[in-house]
Design a binder for these strands. Sequence first.
DNA 1: CTTCAGACTTGCCGCGATGCAA
DNA 2: TTGCATCGCGGCAAGTCTGAAG
Length: 796
Amino acid sequence: MAPSRATSKRARVADDSSSEDEPIAPKRTRTARTAAAAPAAAAAAAASSSSAADAPAPSKPTRKRAAKKLAAASDSEDEPLAAAPPPAKRGRKAAAVKDEPSSSAASSSSTAAAPKRRGRPPSASSSPASSPAPTTARGKGKAKAKAPAASAAVKKEEAANGDGDGDGGSGSDDDADGEFKWWKQENPLGDGRTKWTTLSHNGVYFPPAYVPHGVQMKYNGKPIKLGPAAEEVATFFAGVVGTTWAENPTFVSNFFEDWTDVIKRTEPATCPIKEFAKCDFTPLVDYLAAEKEKKKAMTKADKDAAKKAKQEIDDKYGWALVDGRKEKVGNFRVEPPGLFRGRGAHPKTGKLKKRLQPEDITINISKDSPVPAAPAGHKWKDVVHENEVTWLASWTENVNGQPKYVFLSAASSWKGMSDFKKFEKARELKKHVARIRREYTAMLKDRETEKRQLATALYFIDKLALRAGNEKGEDEADTVGCCSLRYEHVTLKEGNKVVFDFLGKDSIRYYNEVVVDAQVHKNLKLFKKDHSDGDDLFDRITTTSLNKHLTSLMPGLTAKVFRTYNASFTFQQELESTPADGSVADKELAYNRANRQVAVLCNHQRAVPPTHDAQLGKLKDKIRALKYQRREAKKLMLQLDPKLKKSRKDLTEPESDLDDEWIAEYLESEKVKDKEKLQKKLEKDNAEREAEGKPLLTLKELEDAAAKRAARDPTLEQLEKKVAKLGDQIHAAKTQLVDKDENKTTALSTSKINYIDPRITAAWCRKHDVPIEKMFPRTLREKFKWAMDAEADWEF
DNA sequence: CTTCAGACTTGCCGCGATGCAA
DNA sequence: TTGCATCGCGGCAAGTCTGAAG
């Protein structure tokens, strides 16, 4: 059975978030998340879910896709519908269109609210004037190699909020503090197509060349000398030894295949390496461990030097000028070579990701900006000037042939604008959603199977926040979303119950038992009829056709907008239960709970932190200790003034959760701790006394002194205060406990970063007087600068 | 159409910085 | 002051969706 990997922190424990039911986020009982590594995945799935895994489900057994479209074309509307309606010829799309004249033609320019056109993107006036200056400044900075004057200066300017030397493009459109506030512009979203007029930057940063270490791994028990190329790849593998990657047969065989290729090319024909089983990477593993130690043991000076070097790189490559304005670059570091860590049962996992050369990289930059110099002796693959895209550099990754890009950071104007657009689009959906729901509810009974499928899929996307579910290739992990659900992923139960069990994005398991609309249940039964494992559940629709339909209902509407809308809407609703007169901790809890609702809705999971149980235990003990102290304090109060027994019920109430055994243990441990403390104090004091020539103390003396202090009777008033304080502490700790436990397997950050309109948070903080820093860490505050001014009464 | 390439968002994880108790 | 847990951030894989090409 399960190969009991210690590393399987991915296994989840049942989560009974059975707190409430409300329409949008139906109750859910999730179980385990499958492991990423293939063998573990299969095992885990088999172990945890009897239903899904026993069936030949997980790995595509007899998958017959492609049959899809043919079926739709020929056999057409033959399916007898459970209800009654006679088959009908299709092609009557008119029915779907509804009153609005579709507007699909104009829809492509997805400009949210303001259809008003403007000639230029954000600031018409600033760029021509400001761009030449910074460009030259940049050029100089580059020439100086070290300490790029320009960027450093700008940096300081930003931090100190002082005035710069004209760099940074604080043109007339910008705010007084020199920062570009695009959201205060008249038309913050520009014309939607052209992204920039001028663009300059310093290109990309390459990882250092490989330095061979010469450590010899063993083959067949004998040390073996490898050239740099083969050694490097072997060392990549050594890096995963001890993790689940190294246990994954696909990973191992892909690695070995690519490695032997390298060996064939670069090693003499005498190189004996033929079988993975005979490879012993231990020397390399040890070497890596030693290197890690070395790094950890670096002196402070070395660490500082490394930090400084890193800072210089950041200063040089970390900034770009867009229309004369300084913007932060995101991933300017070229991805280093390594073994591809494809998640889930990815057929290509473990393959060698090659080292990129400047000759692989395309640079996108203004015509009039200096092209960043490629590393000595090299040149760029290409230099282009495409101002309808936002990437600064791009290349093709060799494992999957995917394009990769260098973009600006999340805090940049471009990303901010597109976030803003996204949330405005979701808010627009709010106005249409009632109508759209009515429409698809009616369409659930349409005579055409295709329409029924469309409506049913849409029902899931809306109610369950499923992803669209594009088709995937054979050379990718087998994961699905709404449109790509297969027969085996959906099980029908009595009482209109439906059980979903499939692997979604990142091979995260989605398990959900939901009671659905009777018609939906009926439809599913119909779609499944005469089908079997491996067949598409929705065989007449694709994400494209679904989105096309959605766009006809509302311009720019796509499946993912529903996720954004439902997440933000749910969040705002859940926040309403924030206790107006609660403490900040109470409010935080309410916030996190709302956040959690959304995370559960979107199925955002995380591995249980390895120390989770221990943490909980500690917290519980802390609470008990506090309770015990409170009990003692109350006792004292009653001793001091026995009359309180009558008037103060609260003092006589027993503390829950305290048993004698625990108390004894607690007291014992406290005793030990106290003793240790005193012992330390004794040593310290005596050292002092010795120096001053005073007589030394004994432990006994100290103990007596401490006992005397403890015996001093506090006043009633002091006790009262103490009890109150303890009460607060207990409450806070309990709150923390609940929060922590509920968070065990739920990742809040993804929804916070991508799905919840930040203006809801900003408004909530204002309304409830909670500092925004409590809810948004620095990077989020930067990313959501545009949302920070939301008034307390702002509504999503 | 379908497929494919391209561009951009979403998502989980590992690691380093940071804060905190010992 | 050091060891250690937490947290925030960046890395990069994996989605969505659009538009061009076959």
